[in-house]
Simulated scan of single mutants.
Amino acid sequence: MELSLHLLWAFLVFAVVMFFTPGPNNIMLLASGLNFGFRRTLPHVVGVTCGYAFMIGVTGLGLGAVFASLPWLQTTLKYAGAAYLVYLAYAIARSGPPEPGEAERRRPMSFIGAALFQWVNAKGWVMAISIITAYAAISAYPWNVALQVLVSLLIGAMSSVTWVLCGTALQPLVKSARAVRIFNVTMAILLLASLYPVLAEI
């Protein structure tokens, strides 16, 4: 397996920038870290990491060609994802600190939910298609796809854990019900702002 080292370096830089910058996944992980803590958010972290890496692999192994021949399918997924993000933003904005006895009944996003969310994540699709098309020459097929999946797993896991830890670190600072409400509304606004790339194409 021959590697194009300069292209691999460019891919790593791109992946770090895209995974660590704010987007729907990171904003929801930050909010979950604050509201539920690190341990209870772990299934969400694993779901995001594995679900997105799987999406990269499937795209690299042929889904990209399906989108090229059926552009309406990608458009449908994009707007379905936008609608779902609006719903999530509404749910986050309305949530406050749990009432006594309610904390254990409220649950963060599950592994399955987080993994499935990747398929309606507008920023995720932009990243996946960019990764598969722009960095395909890293190595020969299918090793290039395997390498892209591996890098996505590693950097995605580091990014997800970092954002959850940031949310968890805010817990001592955001103690009052009003502060939690303000934080959640801010996260909801940022989540809506992450839709800009989709809305800009309308």
Rank of each mutant, 00 (worst) to 15 (best):
V66P: 00
R181V: 13
N184Q: 11
Q148A: 13
S4F: 02
A80T: 11
M158C: 12
Y196P: 06
F36H: 03
A140K: 15
A89P: 02
V198E: 06
E2P: 01
I112V: 06
I202P: 01
G57L: 02
S32Y: 04
P22L: 14
N144S: 10
R39G: 10
F14S: 12
V151N: 05
V46N: 08
I182V: 12
F14D: 00
G47F: 13
L150H: 05
C166I: 12
A65C: 03
P43G: 10
L191I: 09
V174R: 04
F11N: 09
F20S: 09
L3V: 09
L70V: 08
G37A: 05
V185Q: 04
P172G: 14
A157T: 05
P172R: 12
W119S: 01
F183E: 13
I129E: 05
V86W: 11
I131N: 01
N184L: 13
L61I: 14
V185L: 04
K123L: 07
I131P: 00
L199K: 15
S194N: 14
P108L: 13
S159N: 13
R105Y: 15
G23K: 06
I27P: 00
I182L: 10
R107E: 15
L30P: 00
Q148D: 12
G62Q: 09
F11G: 07
L42W: 03
G81S: 09
